[in-house]
């Protein structure tokens, strides 16, 4: 009899604790989620860039979602160089064809994959980009060749709306 009583009491307390814990969780979540991107940030539209005036060998930087995007119109030599690299030389093997669907245009997030600095254009040992923060070298396809960065610079989702306009995002 006594044992049964204890059990029931334990069940009551356990249930109270459990239900209370659920409530605490339900209250904590909104306080955490409020720091996530809000509806207006999520809705931010894609950026369209007019590239009609760009000559080969020129890079422009545009802002997309608060980050720089490099758009480079590559020369024929640069394309050839990017394509000639052997996969086993690369830390993060990726063919140039995969990175630049139209080989003349390289579009990528200008953010070093090490700790997020913006690499410098036309610098470094591989004739591509060089990150001044911790010395990562990228080639003309934006692939990591030397230094602490683990992966190639990211290629965002983009498309050519027409011959002169690139839509990022």
């Amino acid at each position: 009899m006594a044992e049964k009583k204890t059990k029931r009491r334990d069940f009551l307390f356990t249930a109270t604790y459990a239900v209370g814990a659920v409530g605490v969780g339900a209250v904590v979540w909104p306080m955490i989620d409020q720091m996530n991107p809000d509806a207006s940030v999520k809705a931010l539209a894609s950026t369209e860039v007019d590239v009609s005036s760009m000559d080969p060998g020129k890079t422009i930087t545009v802002l997309w979602r608060g980050k720089p995007v490099f758009i480079r119109r590559r020369t024929q030599e640069e394309i050839a160089e990017a394509k000639s690299v052997k996969m086993d030389e690369l830390k993060d093997p990726e063919k140039d064809e995969e990175r630049a669907k139209n080989p003349e245009w390289l579009v990528m997030l200008g953010v070093c994959t090490h700790l997020g600095c913006v690499p410098l254009d036309q610098k470094g040992d591989y004739n591509g980009w060089f990150c001044p923060c911790h010395g990562s070298h990228y080639d003309i396809s934006g692939r990591i060749r030397k230094g602490p960065a683990p992966t190639n610079m990211e290629v965002p989702k983009y498309e050519f709306v027409n011959a002169n306009t690139i839509k990022i995002g």
Binding site: P30, M31, D33, Q34, N36, D38, A39, S40, V41
Partner: peptide, 13 residues
Amino acid sequence: EHIMRDVNYGWLI
């Protein structure tokens, strides 16, 4: 108004 409309659970808080 931004809090009330766009921030996640902003209206609740």
